[in-house]
């Protein structure tokens, strides 16, 4: 389609970042908040992180145990389906490689589940080999509740709804099972570089 919006000039991207911003996205300095309902309040004393589903033996960590796992500081660009991208965000957390190495499994998908009932689905291929983390720090501070604290998933190469807030565990599954937004018309995979925003994109 070659429709031109009469009189639209637009704000061109700054030099140097153009290769980092996927189609249809704009860069923001703010950190917008997006969620479907109230921010859950889970005390750390009862917080756990669990890997279950199609695994030989489920594995669970308390907050203390989780914080004692080897962690890293990661700097990544993030892309939200509501059109904003934020560059060079700095996170602290545990690689999913570390977590998944604690269970034996032979399946290809997972569903991340969260306080508040939110879920999202991911191919395991997309969360291994240094591609995903469970993060509890942002910009050197504990992750704020409205941004998903105490801990959220970080899968920066996919649209940010895949980086589920308030994550409490991973259910490993044989099939790719649509999660919350995926069942409401959003794309199953969500690659920002291919603009996979909605089903059928």
């Amino acid at each position: 389609m070659s429709f031109i919006s009469r009189g639209f000039k637009g704000r061109r991207r700054q030099e140097g970042i153009s290769g980092r911003v996927p189609p249809g996205q704009y860069v923001t300095e703010d950190f917008p908040v997006l969620s479907a309902g109230p921010t859950p309040q889970t005390p750390l004393s009862t917080w756990t992180f669990t890997i279950n589903g199609e695994v030989d033996a489920p594995k669970s960590w308390t907050w203390e145990e989780f914080r004692a796992l080897p962690n890293e500081t990661i700097t990544k660009d993030i892309h939200c389906v509501t059109k904003w991208s934020k560059l060079d965000t700095v996170w602290q957390g545990v690689s999913l490689d570390v977590l998944l190495s604690e269970v034996d499994f032979g399946v290809d998908y997972l569903t991340a589940y969260c306080d508040g009932g939110y879920t999202t689905n991911l191919p395991i291929e997309d969360v291994t080999d240094g591609k995903a983390w469970v993060v509890y720090g942002f910009d050197g501070q504990p992750l704020a509740p409205e941004h998903g604290g105490p801990a959220r998933l970080l899968v920066p190469h996919l649209y940010f709804w895949k980086s589920a807030k308030w994550v409490r565990g991973l259910e490993l599954t044989r099939d790719d099972t649509p999660g919350f937004w995926e069942s409401l018309g959003y794309h199953d995979y969500g690659d920002p570089w291919r603009e996979q925003r909605y089903q059928g994109d």
Binding site: M1, A36, G37, G117, W181, S183, G200, D201
Partner: peptide, 22 residues
Amino acid sequence: MEHLVEQALVAAPHKRLVWQLG
């Protein structure tokens, strides 16, 4: 809070969203 998930599952099947002119 299972509701959140149940509500998502009853949503209608989705047609491809195409760009159009208003």
